[in-house]
Design a protein around this nucleic acid. Structure first.
Lengths: 129, 129
DNA sequence: ACGCATCATTTGCATAAGCAGCTAATGTGG
DNA sequence: CCACATTAGCTGCTTATGCAAATGATGCGT
């Protein structure tokens, strides 16, 4: 042991930080905007880049979600009118996802909540992990 | 903005670290010992302290699990013969949980895997979060 | 002693996640 | 041109979770 106990402590600390922030994010995004954290993250990745049209696999690779989970997340967003699925003509196996105007608006509102929660918890800590 | 973008970056970094470590922990604990991360954490909290007999609410407070989730987690551990539930005589509303010998053994084995995974990912990083 | 508020834990219900299996579209070798 | 392997994405099934209501045990006021 010795240096190993330090490892476990660091993991516990990481676990703690993550859970505190994630659970509050989840709650506030849900209450104020009707979005899951996964849904927000998906929307965010869709909008953050200039090219607002990305394939499912690109999204899945960026996020820590399985393909099936992403598929369902996008399905929920689509049902809520926040994104659109269009099949791409070059490779007709592929599906492009792009945000609708409503999606862009919802994301803009939600991002305020998002940053507020982060500020509340990550404020003043060093930019290390 | 300005200092706000730093916040989001730190959160993404935290999210990333957490997900990488957690998903591998989950997988390896399951494959090698048939334990969920929640189950391992529960067992760990039960054994880490000298007093090997704790009430449900104490456990729930230590972990980031709702009471209902903890109840079911303990139920799974009990079904697997790794912990025992006994009702405490002082306050008969309460329930004590304590590990069985099998539970102690399983925990000892699993903790090697646990530490190995942590070492693989958290090695050499500063003890900050 | 009786009713009622309170606390500890479990259970019913709805939801998101992962895995494995499925379909559709491409690409490759004969 | 036809098999076969590969890739992209979706769906059925099981499971862990959270919330809210139910159950069971205590204690308090009268």
């Amino acid at each position: 042991m010795g240096s190993d106990t330090g490892l476990v402590d660091r993991w516990r600390s990481l676990l703690s930080s993550y859970n505190v922030v994630a659970s509050q994010l989840e709650r506030e995004l849900q209450d104020a905007h009707g979005l899951t954290m996964s849904e927000y993250e998906t929307l965010d990745r869709l909008i953050g880049v200039d090219c607002e049209k990305r394939r499912m696999q690109e999204l899945a690779a960026d996020m820590y979600l399985s393909q099936s989970a992403l598929s369902r997340t996008v399905a929920r967003l689509e049902k809520g009118g926040l994104v659109q699925r269009t099949l791409c003509e070059d490779d007709r196996r592929g599906v492009y996802v792009n945000p609708t105007e409503a999606g862009v608006r919802r994301h803009a509102e939600a991002s305020k909540t998002h940053r507020a929660v982060l500020a509340q918890h990550l404020q003043g800590q060093p930019a290390r992990v």
